[in-house]
Simulated scan of single mutants.
Amino acid sequence: MIPDGITLAQPHLNFYDFGPTPFVALPDEQRVSYCLYVPKSFVSADKAARRHWRLIVAMHGTGRTAAAYRDHFAAFADAHDCIILAPLFPVGLIEPGEMSNYKRIKFHDMRFDQLVLDMVDLVGRRYDIDVSRVALFGFSGGGHFTHRFLYLHADRLFAASIGAPGGVTLLDDSRDWWVGTRNLRAVFGVDVDLEAMRRVMVQMVVGAEDTDTWEITLKPGMPGWMEDANIAGATRIDKIASLKAGFEAAGIAVRHDVLPGVRHEGLKVVGAVQDFLADAVAASRA
């Protein structure tokens, strides 16, 4: 129920559809879920006002701190008329204890890019906002997901913030997925759309002290190992630099933020990400 004295422009919504929402299972794939932050100012937004609202997807890392990212974007959402969507892809989907399921987009019978698009479209219908193009942020494991999603669905993004991935897929048609993009059509049924990627505002962000390599150096026999798995460099700083070089060589503009004093600490990059997204949201409305 909606508290007395509040009139909803969308009467099908209820009290728990605003503010920080509960996690909700995706109807057609109940192994995964999502939560939202919906500013209270949306409660009375009419159809004309809703045209200006934007959806920002915040993808968690390996630690699955989806609600923490959602909450850290709440003030931004209030200030910029945005809804925040935070997917949750649990550890142990299909394979007990498996932690990286979503990072390379496809895992067994699951396509995590399509699951995120299903969530986006559900939110668009429920709140009656334009989700034809959204912003996507991810740090660490979320950074893995974000740049690979960009290769597949640039037409659905107005902004992509790629935070400190431990492994990158280079824009490289001489190597196969996941190291490069040569066989993207064979794996996913699409080709890289460089023109669409050039229309997306892109940020790459990493801490200047993010130099540990113990978790991200792949060796034969490890999950995800393939030839040239480490070609982009040893540290996350190196990998971001290699990814950026490939984007820029293809004519894709990149904002590159290397944050002083920051290690591999996702919540400490949120301020720089929000600076970027403020410009991207404004540009999307223009």
Results as ranks from 00 to 15, higher is better:
13 L>Y: 05
3 P>Y: 04
11 P>Q: 07
79 A>F: 01
178 W>L: 08
76 F>H: 11
243 L>I: 09
242 S>Q: 02
160 A>N: 06
76 F>A: 10
246 G>I: 03
44 S>W: 08
88 L>I: 02
143 G>Q: 05
204 M>C: 15
120 V>L: 01
252 I>Q: 08
68 A>H: 10
125 R>P: 02
276 F>L: 03
86 A>H: 09
192 V>R: 09
104 R>W: 12
164 A>L: 01
96 P>A: 12
141 G>H: 01
91 V>T: 15
183 N>K: 08
196 A>G: 10
134 V>R: 00
218 L>N: 04
162 I>A: 11
76 F>Y: 12
263 R>G: 15
283 A>P: 05
209 E>L: 13
210 D>E: 11
161 S>R: 02
206 V>K: 05
225 W>D: 06
130 D>L: 05
108 H>M: 14
286 A>M: 13
9 A>L: 10
19 G>W: 03
131 V>E: 03
175 R>W: 10
239 K>R: 14
8 L>Q: 13
2 I>K: 10
10 Q>P: 00
158 F>S: 13
21 T>G: 06
236 R>F: 06
116 V>Q: 07
101 N>S: 15
137 F>K: 01
235 T>V: 04
65 T>E: 12
140 S>Q: 06
145 F>N: 01
177 W>D: 11
156 R>C: 09
141 G>F: 00
48 A>C: 04
280 A>G: 00
280 A>H: 04
125 R>G: 13
201 M>P: 07
9 A>W: 11
112 F>R: 00
39 P>S: 06
135 A>I: 01
204 M>R: 10
280 A>Q: 07
211 T>Q: 12
71 D>A: 07
123 V>E: 08
204 M>P: 02
263 R>I: 07
36 L>G: 03
159 A>F: 01
216 I>R: 08
187 V>M: 06
169 T>N: 07
23 F>I: 06
93 L>E: 14
178 W>S: 11
225 W>H: 05
133 R>Q: 15
235 T>S: 12
272 A>L: 02
4 D>R: 13
51 R>M: 13
65 T>P: 02
88 L>M: 14
239 K>Q: 11
174 S>W: 04
3 P>T: 07
97 G>M: 07
89 F>G: 09
266 G>A: 09
223 P>S: 08
256 H>W: 13
247 F>S: 06
168 V>R: 05
234 A>C: 08
184 L>N: 01
223 P>R: 05
160 A>I: 04
267 L>T: 13
46 D>N: 15
46 D>G: 13
104 R>T: 11
159 A>H: 00
282 A>V: 11
26 L>H: 04
35 C>G: 12
162 I>F: 07
265 E>G: 04
254 V>A: 09
241 A>F: 08
